[in-house]
Design a protein around this nucleic acid. Sequence first.
DNA 1: CTGAAATACTCAGTGCACTGAGCACTTCGA
DNA 2: TCGAAGTGCTCAGTGCACTGAGTATTTCAG
Lengths: 154, 154
Amino acid sequence: MAAVDLTTHPGHLARRLQQAHYLLWNTMVSEEITSPQFAVLNALVAEPGLDQRTVGERVGLDRSTIAEVISRLGRRGLLDKVRDPQDGRRFLLRLTDDGVRTHRKLTVRTARMNQVFLAPLSDDEQGRFFELIRRVADAAEGLRNPAEPLVTQR
Amino acid sequence: MAAVDLTTHPGHLARRLQQAHYLLWNTMVSEEITSPQFAVLNALVAEPGLDQRTVGERVGLDRSTIAEVISRLGRRGLLDKVRDPQDGRRFLLRLTDDGVRTHRKLTVRTARMNQVFLAPLSDDEQGRFFELIRRVADAAEGLRNPAEPLVTQR
DNA sequence: CTGAAATACTCAGTGCACTGAGCACTTCGA
DNA sequence: TCGAAGTGCTCAGTGCACTGAGTATTTCAG
């Protein structure tokens, strides 16, 4: 009889929130391009020519996941991947024309979807919603990367 | 140059939040038992003898995912799965002693983890955090299941 | 009482997400 | 200048998450 109330567990809520979002994305934005894929397109619109690792950093995906996402986008012909002539370890990424068009189209639909998704909250509440989640996520990411070595008491 | 700011996209924030949680769970709670697995154990502590589909409903997992999670918990010997003699389609699920012990142990650690995870927020803010996420997630789930046929204007 | 509908579960396929191990290339110090 | 350390990427393995199709069992209408 020691069962716990999951509605006060942030991890459980985060999972449910993401699931709900996934479903709505599928019906309102795209069945082919997923939300993480859109994030990658978006990063490359902002900064063409990034390498794989850096894109991953921008959108919050680890080396393996970003490799898969990029390979899928490549197969769809939405981006090009060429060896950096300056540094043979890197691949430089750049959207194709089709990639740019796709990004533009999805940007519009994504905005509509976000409106529907956030409709239950007032404008004020939407701001607080973003801020609270961001603070929790940032802090937890900070626990992971010990950040600046944290100068010892100087 | 039409790149968008992902920090105001709830889907992106939800994903980052869940990732951060996943990492913290791994270091502070368990490397073997995942958060969804714990949710299933918890549901069966509250209501022993549930069938697979209902457990899925309680914790928010679809038929396929819940089947995999349950099969993993079964392999670890944390729950038993027997055909319902009353209804040959169902499997009835029940925790083993080991399952109950594991749930008890993880409950303590999970509470500690939640404290750390939510530390950046004041008590007030934690309450609002839960409430805002719950409202958005509930509403989006409602869009999916058209709910009660919604008696036409009576 | 029998055939159609509904229900519980399984299976195959796709995609995200992480870790640990390994390879190729660059950089930097002795 | 050459070898060790560091870095970008790949690969294999595990687990969550959904859909569509298929099987077995129950239920319910005629």
